[in-house]
Write a protein that binds this DNA or RNA. Structure first.
Lengths: 341, 341
DNA sequence: TTGTAGGCGTTATCAA
DNA sequence: TTGATAACGCCTACAA
């Protein structure tokens, strides 16, 4: 015979505490504007009733949602899920909820813009390079931009806030690691070049080689598409050569694993005959045979920085008209696939 | 000199179309209750103004959020992120948004309950076994339960809707695979037994062995904690024995990889000297040396089923008072770590 | 078929 | 310091 118990509203609390709803609201948002005695009475009433603030009503009134939206191509991919972990951490520390979207329908730009306009999210974290930031921001001339931070390899638009990894410096660091081990015959399995940030990895490699006065041999510069398959193909390309490098910098870990795998089949052992360094530090890297030396992308930091930047913009801590560009550094992870020449 | 353009409301659309706001609302929610001509006029006005429905207002009025909340211990873990992928797919197909939470503060039960009461989410997907469903549901006697579906290994409470994998059947299937390959000397590296569902894996193993009339040798029954480390320890345990099994069923993939790794160091090769089958099909399994035969957990399906069940409950398609228990099957993934005896 | 009016729960403004 | 009031934008009886 328990009475049907609606979720209590601020009115219920007010009644219970013998004050007005306005006072309850004040106790909740700015307690110091209320006298100590009433404040305590209200707080008692709040816990007595089990009152929870109704976010929908609050959002409607305040025109914000205290929620951010993360858009990523595929959250099943460990890269994005690690980033998401950082996002959730940072957001919850600042009292924000996180909405995750991967299926953006026919017109992703409109879909995302609607999300913000519809008062479901206050800002947008964009991890999907296939999306066009112009479209989301509305046509160039008009109106204020939506709170938006982009964090993916290709940032075409300097007017958009971004969090990126310094690919060039990271690639140079990887290459110098090989040089420091005494290698002079060094090859590079390149990432797809369509993408500007990935292209930076090649630039970084070339810079490090030039600085060390080492020759870049064209037959040791191979092109891959980041798949295991092109790694294997690159392995075959190397096997076909009379002179082989003693070290190889690969544009990502999958390709590195492919190369190592293919060469082993032919009796060329890593790191005995060839030192190999990868890029990304995917989960598999530590379990590969041999465990792969690589440059670790600071995925969680990317999520955290992007989130904090976004919330700063939402809350006006950072002026919205001056784009923010954060650059993070990758970290060298030493394992067993590289060794002294 | 562009005028400051507020996001248009339903009133703006109404004005533009020369109708009342109520009519616009009808066009949006039940178009057939409006004459064709006005409907078209309204639709034109909607796109002319770029109107987007304000979710906060809608939620307040309708007392729902068309949003579900997924609670998981750690979204950086590939297991949960794959589940999340399924969740997002299913939810977006049914027009729901997905909120993800991993940091639940000091009092997780209260935190989660607040989330629902505060009208931010209509239902809860629980993937965190450390949470107590009793607490969230409110004390036993009172009130209607919150829409909640649990999907983790340990389901202590039959009154809670759940989506689970049939661990016993899956373990039996794995064991029978080894038996079918002609093995008779089969060991088992067990999962932690504190957990009921994990304990089922052991039961499944024992059942399959008994059905085949094979002996269960105590010295080949080892206990692990699902870490790589206990896999290595189990490998050492096996190496110390004068008589070894020819096949081993491991409670999860990490342990399987650990065993294989340790045995190889001692010159015992998999699958030449020992066939090994794991459980889960973590991403690493396919890249292990040798690629690991294993039972794949249908992670994405778990997410999808849980989500659809939850939304069914929210929308009243399924009666809330009769708990739903869905059982999914794991799938045998054949790779190279098992072979004929 | 369409319009009017009231209220969902909150907070900001203004007055007391 | 506190209270009354109005408004945020939407939906749904009810009336026309």
């Amino acid at each position: 015979m328990v009475p049907i118990r609606k979720t209590p509203t601020i009115q219920d609390v007010a009644r219970q505490a013998n004050v007005s709803a306005a006072t309850v609201s004040r106790v909740l948002s700015s307690p110091d504007r209320v006298s100590k005695t009433t404040r305590e009475r209200v707080q008692a009433a709040v816990s007595a009733t089990g009152y929870t603030i109704n976010q929908a009503a609050r959002s409607l009134r305040l025109r914000n949602a205290r929620t951010i939206l993360m858009a990523a191509p595929n959250i099943g991919n460990p890269y994005y899920s690690t980033v998401l972990d950082g996002v959730i951490r940072a957001a919850s520390e600042r009292g924000y909820s996180v909405l995750v979207a991967t299926r953006l329908g026919q017109d992703p730009n409109r879909w995302l813009a609607d999300y913000l306009h519809s008062n479901r999210a206050d800002g947008l974290l964009l991890f999907d390079g296939s999306l066009d930031t112009f479209g989301i921001n509305g046509s160039d001339e008009e109106g204020p931009n939506l709170p938006l931070v982009a964090a993916y390899d290709e940032i075409p638009d300097p007017r958009v806030n971004s969090v990126l990894v310094d690919n060039r410096a990271a690639a140079a660091r990887a290459t110098r690691h090989l040089i420091e081990l005494g290698h002079t015959r060094i090859g590079h399995l390149m990432s797809p070049s369509r993408n500007k940030s990935l292209h930076e990895r090649r630039i970084g490699f070339e810079q490090a080689m030039q600085e060390a006065g080492l020759p870049i041999r064209p037959e040791w510069m191979m092109q891959g598409d980041h798949s295991l398959g092109t790694g294997i193909a690159a392995g075959e390309h190397l096997l076909a050569q009379s002179e082989r490098p003693t070290a190889l910098f690969c544009g990502n870990d999958e390709m590195a694993i492919g190369v190592v795998h293919r060469l082993r089949l032919a009796g060329v052992e890593c790191p005995r005959d060839l030192s190999v360094i990868g890029f990304d530090d995917i989960a598999v890297a530590a379990f590969a045979a041999p465990p792969l030396t690589t440059m670790r992308q600071p995925r969680e930091d990317i999520g955290r920085f992007a989130t904090n930047t976004l919330i700063d913009i939402i809350e006006g801590v950072i002026p919205a008209d001056e784009p923010v560009h954060v650059t993070l550094r990758a970290e060298l992870v030493l394992r067993e696939s590289t060794r002294r020449a």
